[in-house]
Design a protein around this nucleic acid. Structure first.
Length: 215
DNA sequence: ATCATGATTTACT
DNA sequence: GTAAATCATGATT
């Protein structure tokens, strides 16, 4: 009934906003715009799926066993990019959250391309449809042309990679647990690590984390 | 559509 | 040496 105006989203992220635990920051990342530009061109995505990592509290976090060379930027100030290499071939990217010294971050798991589709297609020839271009954390990094070279980038400082709030609220969102991992505060294995925009085609259907079976 | 498998580097034990 | 915050591919339903 009230004529409450649609809440206007701020035009940029404030570092203090990101300097909270990833679980609190993650909702504001849904619908946000991640833009990457280099000599070749620009690709931007609307973030559709994120996953929170809670540092020392989270056995699944790269920071669980403390600071190392690889995870060092997770311990730095919020608003920087933590890019890591995995499975011998993939880059994945996180938005560092939390206070300096607290290693919490949000993995950007999926997005919808809103700018530079041609370049994204060129970088991801295996994608059979545009919704697959940035579906999955490594695919997203690939579509954006982000590699380890971008590790530590300040994404609030108008550099090669920038993050800004989306113009529109993301609409209905969903969350899901990651099974097999204890949540912070002893919540057991039902913690909503993942958030995504409901019914978004660029998000793969939720699959419980299955430990790889030995043979 | 789903399922199984191989690819291949890095960080850490 | 081993596990890893994954993906592309080819087989199968």
């Amino acid at each position: 009934m009230s004529d409450r105006p649609l809440r206007r989203r701020p035009s940029s992220f404030d570092r203090a906003t990101l300097a909270r635990p990833a679980l609190e920051v993650a909702p504001s990342l849904l619908g946000a715009i991640l833009r990457s530009r280099d000599d070749v061109g620009t690709v931007a995505v609307r973030v559709t799926e994120v996953e929170a990592y809670m540092g020392a509290e989270d056995p699944g976090s790269h920071a669980y066993r403390g600071r190392t060379t690889r995870n060092a930027v997770m311990f730095g100030p919020a608003g920087h990019l933590y890019v890591y290499f995995t499975y011998g071939m993939h880059w994945c990217l996180n938005v560092v959250c939390g206070e300096t010294g607290v290693a919490t971050a949000a993995l950007i798991r999926a997005g919808a391309i809103i700018e530079g589709v041609d370049l994204a297609r060129h970088r991801r020839p295996a994608a059979r449809s545009d919704r697959e271009l940035a579906r999955g954390p490594a695919r997203l990094a690939s579509a954006l042309g982000i590699t380890g070279a971008a590790n530590g980038t300040d994404i609030l400082d108008d550099g090669a990679v920038t993050l800004s709030p989306g113009e529109h609220a993301p609409g209905p969102t969903s969350s899901g647990p990651r099974v097999g991992v204890s949540g912070p505060g002893g919540d057991g294995d039902r913690f909503p690590w993942r958030l995504w925009i409901t019914d978004e085609p660029s998000v793969s259907r939720y699959r419980p984390h299955v430990p790889k079976r030995r043979r």
